[in-house]
């Protein structure tokens, strides 16, 4: 009798095959159950599963020499260690902010001094796009909002309060762009467009 032929009902092979079917079904159910109950870090869940952020922080050092102006255009040097997430590029005229939020990180050391963060940004030029608001916070503290007209470039100083990075030695800047737009209908919000960053400088006051 071939293994391909069905066993007679009630025969030991019939029972064994049914047992194998039941076991497979059970294994598949368990795997499915585990799959719909993922056990992942918070950052993973927020970005990949809950979609509550478009910016998943990557581990960067934030290596930076205070007072130096960083050029985010093509040919402006490697800025990877300053960009935890939310950026794409560089392209010729800057670093695209992609999605609804982007982050910058500066290793400031445990300074207690107040600082000034100066950002040069250009709003994208996409049909139907309104002026772009950029809401900036530093280590969770709001430090200002600016509005950039379509296709215009602005240079904006943001005052960073004293002592804000004293504990960690790191200054984490968040740029929220609530007016970012989808350049094509149906696009993911991780591809939203708003501004390009061209230069950043952090200076002690």
């Amino acid at each position: 009798m071939s293994l391909l032929s069905d066993p007679k009902p009630g025969s030991p092979r019939f029972v064994a095959t049914y047992g194998a079917v039941a076991l497979l079904a059970l294994i598949e159910l368990v795997i499915l159950w585990q799959a719909i109950h993922p056990n992942v870090p918070e950052a993973y869940r927020a970005y990949y599963i809950d979609h509550t952020t478009t910016c998943m922080r990557q581990p960067v050092t934030g290596a930076y020499t205070m007072g130096i102006t960083i050029d985010f255009r093509s040919g402006g040097g490697d800025t990877t260690e300053l960009r935890p997430c939310g950026w794409e590029g560089p392209v010729g005229n800057g670093m695209h902010l992609l999605g609804e939020t982007a982050r910058l990180r500066f290793a400031t050391g445990t300074t207690t001094q107040a600082m000034t963060l100066t950002l040069e940004m250009t709003a994208d030029d996409i049909e139907g796009m309104s002026d772009q608001r950029v809401v900036v916070s530093a280590n969770g503290t709001p430090v200002g909002t600016t509005t950039i007209p379509r296709a215009q470039t602005v240079t904006v100083p943001f005052a960073i309060p004293a002592g804000i990075a004293a504990e960690t030695g790191l200054l984490d800047i968040i740029l929220d762009v609530p007016d970012a737009v989808r350049s094509r209908p149906g696009d993911s919000n991780t591809r939203k467009r708003s501004i390009k960053l061209t230069e950043a400088t952090l200076t002690p006051n």
């Binding site: 585990q34 990949y48 991780t190």
Partner: peptide, 15 residues
Amino acid sequence: IGDGLAFQHTQRAWG
């Protein structure tokens, strides 16, 4: 990874 559906979830990164 801790996520049996990671093959689907990671599609978000491709935008």
